[in-house]
């Protein structure tokens, strides 16, 4: 019974090393696993997809996180951008934190590499970094005229001269704002853009913050949400199954379809570049890590009960 006592007083560093390994190994050796999409993710996907090919509809991606949460939010951003590029949806990107500006470029460039025909100012437009003091003026100003409120894009071009802005005037056209953040910044969009101008607002958040957003999801103030690496993995799958096949969303298809990330498959095969399955590989790591933690919890409990049975009351 010594072993149980030992488990009870296990040095936390052993836990750390095992957790580290259970994260690193699945990242290095990807394996196929089943991803089931959830409604908040599907809602975001469907909303974006409904804008496909419409020159008078666009989405806005607001990046409000810094590099520390890149691991969770970056695959989401890339997946959403990829969706837009695949389905010809106009995208605008924006950030109000100086450290975020490079991340926006990074996401756009990563997604763009595989789409030679996608052009800045035509298919997407990066508004770039705007000082935080302009947050409200821009957010509210876009309710009337985006070109006036934002003025210039990250490349210093007048927005009104860009082809992308044709047909896009305010939130009536820019009908979905997705805020990617590790905080509750999405509520500024809900309070101002949604309440005042009726813009649809969705969130892409880290898994920890997701719980905060559920009430707003239920009340419909958020039309959808991508939560953590799981949301990103789901979105990646949706893009693979529908957008890349130029199909319309169907709950019935997604339920049954399994997209392998390794090995052969008639449709997907090895064709999915690493960057577009990053979240799913991350999801593998998360699965193993969760299992590991559950095993630890169980071990801890076994040790606890064994100790108690022995009469070792403390």
């Amino acid at each position: 019974m010594k072993i149980f006592a030992k488990i009870q007083s296990l040095d936390r560093r052993y836990i750390y090393i095992i957790v580290a390994l259970s994260i690193i190994i699945p990242l290095l050796i990807p394996f196929n696993s089943r991803i089931d999409t959830t409604k908040p993710t599907e809602d975001v996907y469907q909303m974006i997809d409904s804008f496909a090919g419409k020159p008078n509809k666009a989405i806005l991606m607001n990046f409000s996180h810094n590099a520390s949460t890149l691991a969770e939010l970056f695959p989401m951003e890339v997946a959403v951008l990829r969706h837009c590029f695949e389905r010809d949806v106009k995208v605008f990107t924006l950030c109000f934190m100086p450290d975020t500006a490079p991340l926006v470029d990074y996401a756009i460039n990563t997604a763009k590499e595989d789409f030679p025909n996608i052009k800045a100012g035509v298919n997407y437009c990066n508004f770039g970094y705007k000082p935080y003091s302009l947050f409200l003026p821009i957010l509210l100003g876009m309710g009337e005229n985006i070109a006036e409120a934002v003025e210039i894009d990250s490349e210093g071009r007048k927005l009104e001269n860009l082809p992308i802005i044709e047909g896009i005037k305010n939130y009536d056209d820019l009908n979905l704002v997705i805020d990617f953040s590790a905080s509750s910044s999405v509520f500024s969009w809900v309070t101002y853009a949604r309440a005042k101008f009726g813009a649809n607002v969705a969130a892409g958040v880290t898994a920890v913050m997701a719980a905060d957003n559920y009430p707003y999801l239920q009340s419909g103030q958020l039309i959808g949400m991508l939560a953590g690496i799981k949301g990103a993995a789901e979105y990646e799958k949706l893009v693979d199954v529908f957008a890349t096949q130029q199909r319309e969303f169907s709950k019935e298809i997604i339920k049954e379809e399994i997209v392998p990330i390794t090995g052969d498959h008639p449709i997907y095969g090895d064709k999915i570049p690493y960057k577009f399955k990053k979240a799913r590989i991350g999801m593998n790591a998360q699965t193993v890590a969760h299992l590991m933690i559950i095993i630890f919890i169980l071990l801890g409990n076994i040790g606890y009960f064994a100790n108690r049975k022995k009469g070792g009351k403390k």
């Binding site: 991803i35 969760h290 299992l291």
Partner: peptide, 9 residues
């Protein structure tokens, strides 16, 4: 925890 990862399903 299980519900958050594919293995749960």
């Amino acid at each position: 925890m299980l519900g958050q990862v594919p293995i749960g399903a």
